[in-house]
Amino acid sequence: MIITVTPNPAVNKIYWVDKLKVGSKTQDEFLTRATRSSTSAGGKGVNISIFLAGMGVENVAMGFISGHAGHVLINDLRDKGVTTNFCWTSGETRTNVIIMEQGKEHIPIEVDEGGSGVTTIEAERFIRRYKRALSRASWVVLGGVLPPGVDDGFYHRLTELAKEKGINVVVSATGTPLTRALSAAPYLVKPDLRESLIWDGMVLDTEEHIIAAGKKVIAMGVDMMLISHEVTGDILVTAKGVWKVKARVEMSQLQHLVGADDVFLGGMIYKLQADEGVEGALKFGMAAGTLYAEHGASVCRTQEKIEREMSIITLEQLEGPQ
């Protein structure tokens, strides 16, 4: 069983508009009407859980939720076949607003709330529940930003607890929580560079810089580091080699970019947990992420369709074993 932990999940409210009116002078000019909208559960671990459930992989989504938005989130997850095991806290689960302008879907506007605070007692309650869940887990995925009040060492602690039981841990996060998790040597890390290309003092702007940073992370005992270099291209650094995976697709075809990188990671995990090789997992992950970005979640649910998408994925080994 796979456990995903999303400490600060969100309800994603997406609006599609023909043209977004900004900074106009009259009321008539600043009102933008949505042509359609959707409300769904979001957050890194949550997105991976939805993908895995769609692929028929048993998984449990954990984290903190609260208030009305918490109920919206949990109901959406259940509708999508995800088993839930969230800790309820006081406050309100955050809502993230995403605006997709026609023709510019590949550059959505996203406004994320910070989320409600979590107390030390609530965090400890979660840890107790997480420890129990570990007794049935084979993989753990920790993802996203931490809610206010949760210590930066949270992912480090969760990684340590899982590793004590011999469970593979994947961390997809950013900033200090990710940096601190490294010393617990998770299996795979994926720094989130959407807000800044700088992580732990390293500027991850070129292929060379990414590979150098990856080698530094591998030297700490981490098995793999995956980094999005371009929207349609990622680099995987491992002790056995460095690979660059790329999707041959026009940017304008990418209609659903929000969460696509999580589907990519979910696709990799889907293959890795089945003991398939790194190269195949990387290609499958990129194919899943690309298919999702092109068509959305409803299409990205069968192995067959993802495998068909693999025809547009290229894989290049940049370096051999270190």
């Binding site: 949990i74 259940r78 088993t83 839930t84 095991n85 107790r128 529940r129 129990r132």
Partner: peptide, 8 residues
């Protein structure tokens, strides 16, 4: 309902 809400 696939929910594991439980207590010690």
């Amino acid at each position: 309902t696939k929910d594991l809400t439980s207590i010690e």
